[in-house]
Structure formats: structure tokens, C-alpha cells
């Protein structure tokens, strides 16, 4: 947990800002020097991972409410974008934003009842919601006798631009989410989120409208998850319900965040980079044992480093200062 000493809440550490800006500028320049499709694609995927992990972090990392259903919003965003572009001829960037809006339109009514649930119940309810949306999109056409989502046949999008395009799109989304997380962490809302995590009833008792704060966090998270889903749909050019509503998307978000450190600014960055970088070569080398190895890594990390990479480092730093 990053502590903000009183009085310094509004001043950013100068060095950190400079460093972040330098990284950002470097990342903008990379495609100018590196024309390798593979490298840009890999970087793009890392950015997407960081963005997704940040979405989950804003909601679950800070509040401790384990959302096991973000795949619902990823899928909603993917389908909204696909349908808008294919059926409505809506331009890409407008489509992804509209996809985010659709996701919020789901997140608020879904969040209102579910965010009153605690612990495992919230986790299971959100999971059920995600699976229900997947099933609904899968079965919709058959049950209603229409031709809308095209069930398991999926939807083909217009052929997307180059990897470089997605590199920049995800770089922007990732940066926006990073800045939002930074601002939220220092804002009133950030304190309320952490308070909810620690002792929700006590937070409510000292004036925090906990449900409202949770809904905000949930809606922000849903909006961006859907935007990312929309971009990814365009990148993939072909989507089916089983791909974009997959529980594996949820799990990836959770694990990246957990690996890096939940409720920390840098956790998603570290976790997503780590997971993407190790899983790509693993997947290439051991396509059949890949998931087994990932399973082993998950278990080992949880048992050995329950606070995640960033959390463990922070703790180290605190301990070595002799607190």
C-alpha cells in the first residue's frame, strides 16, 4: 500500500513523473525504429494486458470485491463494436466508445444488487452474470429465431489495420488507465475504496456512501474493459461468444493483477508484463503443456508471494527501513 504522507497528497514525486513521461515518449517512438511485426504485436498485447489488469485493479484491487465476471464486459464491448461496425458502418473509434457506454448500461443495474453481496457471493454472482451473458449471446438467435448475434458462428469484422495501429491504440488506453488509477488513488474516491476494502461497515458509518462508490468503480472498470474488448475484436477480426466472453479472459485479468500486486498503481503494469512475457515463449515452446505450467506458476506465486511482486517489494522496502 502506497502511503501518502499528509500534506503531500497533491504533489507528485518529480522523479516519478519524469520517469513515466520518459517511458511514454520512448514507447511512442518505438514503432519508428522497430518495424518487426512480431515485436509490435507482443508490445501491443502487453499494453492490452496492462490495461485489462488496470480495469480489474480499479474495482477489485482497491475494494477487495472479487469481480469474477469482467469477461461479460469484454464480450459486450467486443460484440457492440463488431455489430456497430459491421451492421451500422459506425467508425471504429466511435464504436468502441459506444461499446463502453453499453457496458455501463449493463454495469449499473447489475452492480446495484450484486455489489450489496459480500465475499464469495459477489464473486460467484459476477461469474454467473458473465456466463449468463455468454450463454445468452450464444443462444439468442436460435431461441428467438432471429439472425443477430449469429451464435457460435461468430461475427467477422472488417479487416483491421496494422499491428502498429493497435500498438498505439492500446498504448493510449493503457496510459489513460494508468493516469486514472494514479488520480483515483490520491483522490477522495481512492481513500473511500481502500476504506471499503479494510472495513466496509465502518466506512459507511463515517459517511461513505459505499454502494455509490462501488458502483462508480464497477462502472469505470466495465467501461474500459468493454473498450478494450472492442479494440481486441477489431484486432482479432473474428469473434465468437466462447472467445470474448471466456472465463479465461477474467482469469487472465485477475492473475495479472494478483501477480503484480492488487491495489497498487504499478501492480497491473508489472503483473501483465510478466505474465505476457513468460506466457508467449512458453506457449511457443510448449503448446501442450502451457496451461499446466501456467497453473503451476499461479499456485507457486500465490503460496510464495501472496502480496504479488509489487506488494512484496514494497513490504521489503518498508521492512528494510526498519518500521
Amino acid at each position: 500500500m502506497i502511503q501518502t504522507p499528509p500534506g503531500r497528497a497533491f504533489t507528485l514525486p518529480r522523479k516519478a513523473v519524469l520517469l513515466a513521461a520518459a517511458v511514454f515518449v520512448t514507447l511512442i517512438l518505438v514503432p519508428a525504429f522497430c518495424h518487426q511485426g512480431y515485436a509490435l504485436r507482443l508490445m501491443g498485447m502487453i499494453f492490452m494486458g496492462i490495461a485489462l489488469a488496470s480495469c480489474w485493479n480499479i474495482m477489485s484491487g482497491y475494494t477487495g470485491y472479487i469481480d469474477f465476471g469482467p469477461a461479460a464486459y469484454f464480450g459486450i464491448g467486443a460484440y457492440a463494436t463488431a455489430l456497430l461496425m459491421v451492421r451500422g458502418g459506425v467508425p471504429f473509434f466511435l464504436s468502441i466508445v459506444l461499446g463502453g457506454v453499453v457496458a455501463v448500461a449493463f454495469a449499473v443495474p447489475v452492480g446495484l444488487p450484486t455489489l450489496r453481496l459480500r465475499g464469495a457471493y459477489f464473486a460467484i454472482a459476477t461469474f454467473a452474470f458473465a456466463e449468463a451473458t455468454r450463454q445468452a449471446v450464444l443462444e439468442w438467435d436460435r431461441v428467438l429465431g432471429v439472425n443477430f448475434f449469429q451464435g457460435s458462428h461468430g461475427i467477422t469484422l472488417p479487416i483491421g489495420p496494422t499491428h502498429q495501429f493497435f500498438y498505439y491504440t492500446f498504448l493510449v488506453i493503457m496510459t489513460v488507465l494508468f493516469v486514472i488509477t494514479y488520480l483515483v488513488e490520491r483522490s477522495r474516491m481512492g481513500y473511500a475504496l481502500k476504506a471499503i476494502h479494510e472495513a466496509e461497515d465502518a466506512a459507511e458509518l463515517i459517511g461513505v456512501n459505499t454502494l455509490k462508490i462501488k458502483i462508480y468503480a464497477y462502472a469505470i472498470s466495465a467501461f474500459f474493459t468493454a473498450v478494450i474488448g472492442g479494440v481486441d475484436a477489431y484486432w482479432l477480426t473474428y469473434i465468437t461468444p466462447n472467445d470474448v466472453f471466456s472465463v479465461h479472459i477474467t482469469i487472465k485479468m485477475v492473475i495479472m493483477c494478483l501477480l503484480g500486486g492488487m491495489g497498487t498503481l504499478l501492480g497491473p503494469v508489472v503483473g501483465a508484463s510478466f505474465l505476457t512475457l513468460i506466457s508467449e515463449p512458453l506457449w511457443a515452446r510448449f503448446p501442450y503443456d502451457y496451461l499446466i505450467i501456467i497453473g503451476v506458476i499461479i499456485v507457486l506465486v500465490i503460496v510464495a508471494m501472496p502480496k504479488g511482486i509489487v506488494g512484496t517489494l514494497l513490504e521489503w522496502k518498508v521492512d528494510s527501513r526498519g518500521t
Binding site: S60, G64, I66, F68, G119, A120, A123, V254, I255, L258, M262, I298, V299, I302, V303, P306
Partner: peptide
């Protein structure tokens, strides 16, 4: 925290 056991 329970999340650990779920993920585990």
C-alpha cells in the same frame, strides 16, 4: 484473503 484460495 479469500481471493488467494479462489485463484489457487
Amino acid at each position: 484473503p479469500p481471493i488467494m484460495s479462489y485463484i489457487c
